[in-house]
Amino acid sequence: MTVLYWVLAFVVLQRLAELAWAARNTRRLLARGGREVGARHYPLFVLLHASWLVAIALTIPADTVPHWPLLGLFALLQLGRIWVIATLGSYWTTRIITLDDAPLVRRGPFRFLRHPNYWVVAGEIAVLPLAFGAWPVALIWSLLNALLLRHRIRIEESTLQPRAGLS
């Protein structure tokens, strides 16, 4: 197997594990009285991420030698992803689930950024294809991600705003 396929296998397995973790957390949050907001756009995120991986697999020749510094940056972004998930713990999901009486998380990466997971994902979507020279994939999926995030962040902000004083 080539470096590209190892990296893609890692990302696919990581995303599948995260989806399982997110589904578990979602069920638990809903059982505690949480409610989902903005569910209609969720399938678009699934499609975006799946098509991004397919585009990488189909447009980059398997034997492409990566630009190692960019692949290293992608690895650092994975540490950021883990930091966000660990900080949110049982509150981390891939959906917008809110518990109206829960305070906002303000530790970990949330001390420095609003929506740190979205920053990490935006970096991943751009950096991974660029590490293999696929700038069109990086550009197209970054633009699509930005459009979806613009919509999602608006929904998330309006949902979280009433809870801002609970921290």
Rank of each mutant, 00 (worst) to 15 (best):
M1F: 10
V3P: 07
L4F: 06
Y5A: 12
W6P: 02
F10W: 13
V11A: 13
Q14C: 13
Q14L: 14
L16Q: 13
L16T: 11
W21V: 08
W21T: 12
W21M: 12
A22Y: 01
A22R: 01
R27D: 00
R27Y: 00
L29I: 06
L30C: 03
G33K: 08
G33R: 08
G34Q: 10
G34M: 03
R35I: 11
E36T: 14
V37R: 09
A39G: 15
A39S: 15
Y42P: 03
F45C: 00
V46I: 15
L48N: 07
L53G: 03
V54D: 08
I56R: 07
T59F: 08
T59A: 04
P61R: 14
P66K: 01
W68V: 14
P69E: 10
L70K: 05
L70D: 02
L70P: 04
L73S: 07
L73R: 10
R81L: 05
V84W: 08
G89M: 02
Y91A: 15
W92D: 05
T93L: 02
T98G: 00
L99Q: 09
D100S: 13
D100T: 13
P103L: 06
L104P: 05
R107P: 05
R107L: 09
R107Y: 03
G108Q: 01
G108T: 00
F112H: 12
L113Y: 01
W119I: 08
V120G: 04
V120A: 09
A122K: 12
G123Y: 07
G123V: 00
G123T: 02
L130P: 04
A131H: 06
G133Y: 01
A138D: 01
A138M: 06
W141T: 13
S142E: 03
L147E: 15
L148K: 03
H151P: 10
R152D: 11
E156W: 09
L160V: 01
Q161S: 11
Q161H: 12
P162T: 11
R163S: 04
R163C: 08
A164S: 15
G165H: 14
L166K: 08
S167H: 12
S167M: 11
